[in-house]
Simulated scan of single mutants.
Amino acid sequence: MARRDRRAIDTSERLTGAEKAAVVLLALGDESKPIWSMMDEDEIKEVSSAMSNLGNVASGAVETLMLEFVEMMSSTGSLMGSYDATQRMLAKFLPEDKVDGVMEEIRGPAGRTMWDKLGNVNETVLANYLKNEYPQTVAVILSKIRSDHSAQVLGALPEEFALEVVSRMLRMEPVQREILDKIEETLRTEFMSNLARTSKRDSHEMMAEIFNNFDRQTENRFLASLEERNRDAAERIRALMFVFEDLSKLDPGGVQTLIRTVEKDQLALALKGASDSLRDLFFSNMSERAAKIMREDMAAMGPVRLKDVDAAQQAMVATAKDLAGRGEIMLADSGGDDELIY
């Protein structure tokens, strides 16, 4: 489930069924134990996932829901659903190992079945795990997930091993239910649980993303203040940030894709505040005529406000990230030494 906007939810109409149930259970607190005990495991996972991603719920929305579900409750305060709140709530009435299992399911890749979840695991991560398994086991697994994802995983496996897996898939007969169950259980205990434990988001990465959305003056002010208090933290955040000048790490194909995607007036405004080297990179990836027109447009703008340039540059960075997310370009880490692998 996608993480919900952290602004307060002020109306119950914005909530899904699972989210409404999560709000009611949070409001009931310890009194919710009988309700939880009547749910099956899938329902617990669905409601727990909704609860952990809930964010702020305004008191008015809570009151409306409580009036719907529990007539004797007419009002309640605002609530905050989070991983920690969900884990504390589950720990009150579920065994510790079951709580850990539910929370690992939430933190892990999305999907109701094991095969759905595998389909949302990065192909390189999955391939690194599968390359140590028997080819026949890998063949069964790849036959159960989406064909496009299987293709990506095969491409990430060592070539000889991948060919052996393909050979097994071609000769594969229907798999017995007991074997599938055993493979699913192994994946759950050995792979998914480790993946969930290691996929907790780094706080510096989260702050770098927030800092990327600051205007230049606010970003500089926060980083300068943070450096005075914790230089190491400031340096880690700066290294993780992807900023406009990092577009210089794009290869020619990536630059040309970005040029075709960004509105010409936005590109001109963004380049107005770029370094000479970055301007030259973009101009060198245009036709001579297009580069001449772009330079003329930039000159015709005259002085421009810094905040307008910042906004245009941030929009270009956001566009680059969207293109990277769709696999059309590849962004290099701003703190790394490697150039972009396209």
Rank of each mutant, 00 (worst) to 15 (best):
R4H: 03
R6I: 13
S12K: 12
E19V: 02
A22E: 09
V23R: 14
V23T: 09
G29W: 04
K33Y: 00
I35Q: 00
I35K: 02
S37N: 14
M39S: 05
E43Y: 01
E46T: 08
S52C: 06
N53W: 00
N53E: 11
L54I: 07
N56H: 08
S59H: 14
A61M: 05
E63Y: 03
V70W: 11
G77R: 08
G77M: 11
S78P: 15
S82D: 13
S82F: 02
A91C: 06
D97L: 09
V99P: 06
G101I: 00
M103D: 03
I106P: 02
G119P: 01
N120Y: 14
N120M: 13
T124D: 05
N128Y: 03
L130D: 06
E133F: 08
Q136C: 04
V138K: 07
V138A: 15
A139H: 04
I141P: 00
K144E: 12
R146I: 03
A151C: 10
F161T: 04
V165R: 11
V166H: 03
R188G: 02
E190M: 07
A196L: 14
R197D: 07
R197V: 04
T198L: 15
D202P: 01
A208M: 06
N213P: 00
R216K: 14
Q217M: 08
Q217S: 13
A233G: 10
I237Y: 00
E245T: 05
D246Q: 11
L247W: 01
L247H: 01
L250M: 11
V255S: 07
R260D: 02
T261C: 10
V262L: 00
E263F: 10
A268K: 03
A270H: 00
A270L: 01
S275L: 08
D276S: 12
D276A: 15
S277H: 08
F282M: 12
F283H: 06
K292G: 05
I293A: 13
E296G: 08
A299C: 02
A300E: 12
P303Y: 06
D308K: 06
A311T: 14
K321M: 09
D322I: 05
D322Y: 09
G327I: 01
L331T: 02
G336I: 13
D338F: 12
I341V: 14
